[in-house]
Computed example of a mutant assay.
Amino acid sequence: MDLINKIADGLIANGAIKVEDRDLYEYGLKQGLLIIVNILTTIAIGLLFNMVWQSLLFMIAYIPLRSFAGGYHARTQSKCYFFSILLTMSVLLAIKLIPCTRFNIVCIAMIAAIIIYALAPVEDANKPLDKMEEEVYKKRARKILAVELCAMLLAMGLRVSWVSFCISVSILALSILIIIGKVKNFRSGGCCTTNK
């Protein structure tokens, strides 16, 4: 990207980074830009659905858990971006269409939590995990899941059911990606078996 190249050139010219570190900083800048684009896109989808708070809460619940639980990943960044748009729209539609009852909130969360607890982390060919990383990711995913379930129950106790429902559906979305990721790995004969 021209913008990233120009920023890297400027940082080198100002002596902020070394020439030999250019690739590392370009990668970091690219990832940062992708995060900003994804956040802005999610907010834009929230505006389109008139569900900005729900879209923000989805990101807050989904991203930390996704980082450690893993699941299905698209092969390219452009496919990943369009998949993220589709996922966000699907989550917001589910929040809008599924009745927001205590029973639904608890059932959805419990089914999703069992799947995540049992199967996470699910690695991908683009992000293989060795045994030690797998254990670390499993513990972190379970801790984040526990925190999110506690937040969901707290919101229910405070009678802010829409918050509980957003968290519940976000956890459900991730559990579905975990199942898809497991199936994909099984069909391809296992993921990254050389790193085990």
Rank of each mutant, 00 (worst) to 15 (best):
L92V: 00
L158V: 07
F68C: 08
L24C: 12
Q54M: 09
A155E: 06
M59F: 11
R142I: 00
R75K: 10
I85S: 00
Y27F: 07
L172H: 02
A13F: 12
Y62P: 06
G71W: 04
P128D: 14
E135Q: 10
M110H: 13
W53F: 14
I114C: 09
I108T: 02
L57D: 13
K138L: 08
I178K: 01
A146Q: 03
P99I: 03
M89C: 14
A61C: 15
S188G: 14
F49E: 07
I116F: 09
C80H: 05
A74P: 03
E134N: 07
L177S: 01
C80Q: 04
I17K: 08
A8G: 01
T88C: 10
R159H: 08
I95V: 04
W162E: 07
A13N: 09
T76S: 02
K6T: 14
C107E: 10
T42G: 11
L34P: 04
M51H: 05
I105T: 02
T194P: 07
I7S: 11
R187C: 14
T76V: 04
E20Q: 13
A8L: 04
N38D: 05
G181M: 04
E123H: 03
K131A: 15
I180P: 00
Y62M: 10
A118T: 06
I95C: 10
C80K: 00
L24R: 06
L158S: 03
S78M: 08
I7W: 14
V52I: 12
Y81L: 06
F49T: 01
V37K: 06
E26K: 12
K18I: 03
A109P: 08
N38Q: 04
R22Q: 06
L24E: 15
